[in-house]
């Protein structure tokens, strides 16, 4: 649905995008992650034409964004909602009027607008706030209103620019869940720009890690967390784990397929081998544990354990 090839962009003399290649299929939940200043928000703005680009291609549904005139660009944006870090609601309009604004700009009649706004208020779960002003709402509620506004024109794509970065972790999580539902129930493609690892892990299926204007790593979230490319380490910061001096230390990766297996207790029970848990970094995602676990076992048992892990379908590697 969105194809990006060799995209380049400079602000004055500073090159912010240096040849980006990304493919986002329809219905995806795609994450663009990177530290600030890596060009991820600029890239997002290129998708709906808020920013222009210098070189390369960017096609949405097969249409090259660069070639569109002002009117065509407007029509394109109608199919793309966008939400922002600071919500960008009009303070002088109430919730109803804020959500209705895109519909009014596209000259829908009042009856349709009324129906649509009330529907959307149900979707975002705050129908009682219909006539509140934004300043009377919490951050999470404001972002929900912004989401409703972005959905008012029934877009195919929703661009999220650091949508949860100004929210506390709990509110961020419930906002993420709302976005997830929207993707599932309405089939809207999500493109999520964030610097928060938690957001990425709890919603994105495929990600690109941006570093200094290039894609430093790309793939499904499972693969990335198993492969742990340098870019991911740069992003998360490396943990210095002091490994035990004796025995064999191995890292076991939990992916979608085996994340629900209690592997450590299985090893100790079925193989009768004692395991020492050294370190672990895991998170629940869609009912599965994702991440990795580092365990230490007696050196003479390591082949046995390796075979067992292979049989159970785990990816693993020896650290020491």
């Amino acid at each position: 649905m969105i194809e990006i090839k060799n995209l380049e962009k400079s602000f004055d003399d500073v090159k912010v995008l240096k040849g980006i290649n990304i493919d986002i299929p329809s219905g995806a939940k795609y994450g663009l992650i990177g530290r600030s200043g890596t060009g991820k928000s600029t890239l997002l703005r290129c998708i709906n034409g808020l920013e222009s680009y210098d070189k390369g291609f960017l096609k949405v549904d097969g249409v090259e964004i660069k070639d569109l005139n002002k009117k065509e660009l407007k029509d394109l944006r109608r199919d793309m909602g966008m939400i922002f870090q600071h919500f960008s609601l009009l303070d002088r309009l109430d919730v109803y009027q804020n959500i209705a604004l895109p519909l009014r700009c596209w000259k829908y009649d009042n009856k349709f607008i009324d129906k649509k706004v009330k529907e959307l208020l149900e979707v975002i779960g705050i129908p009682e706030k219909i006539h509140s002003r934004p300043r009377e709402l919490s951050g999470g509620q404001k972002q929900r209103v912004a989401i409703a506004r972005a959905l008012s024109l029934d877009p195919k794509i929703l661009l999220c620019d650091e949508a949860t970065s100004a929210l506390d972790p709990k509110t961020a999580q419930s906002t993420i869940e709302l976005l997830d539902n929207i993707n599932k129930e309405m089939g809207i493609t999500l493109v999520i720009v964030t610097h928060q690892m938690s957001v990425l892990r709890s919603i994105c299926e495929d990600i690109s890690i941006l570093e200094d204007g290039v894609v430093a790593a790309q793939g499904s979230i499972n693969d990335i967390f198993v492969e742990k490319p340098k870019a991911l380490e740069n992003l998360m910061g490396t943990k210095d784990i002091v490994l035990p001096r004796t025995g064999r230390t191995i890292e076991i990766f939990f992916t979608e397929n085996n994340g629900s297996k209690p592997i450590v207790s299985q090893i100790s029970r079925e193989l009768n081998i004692d395991c020492l848990i050294v370190s672990g970094d895991m998170e629940m995602y869609g009912g599965n544990q994702l991440g990795s676990l580092i365990i230490n076992i007696p050196i003479e048992n390591h082949e046995e354990v390796g075979k067992y892990l292979d049989k159970e379908g785990f990816i693993w590697k020896i650290l020491k």
Partner: peptide, 11 residues
């Protein structure tokens, strides 16, 4: 940012 938001829905 409000202006950007308005642009984003095709105003």
């Amino acid at each position: 940012q409000l202006i950007e938001a308005a642009k984003s829905f095709g105003a």
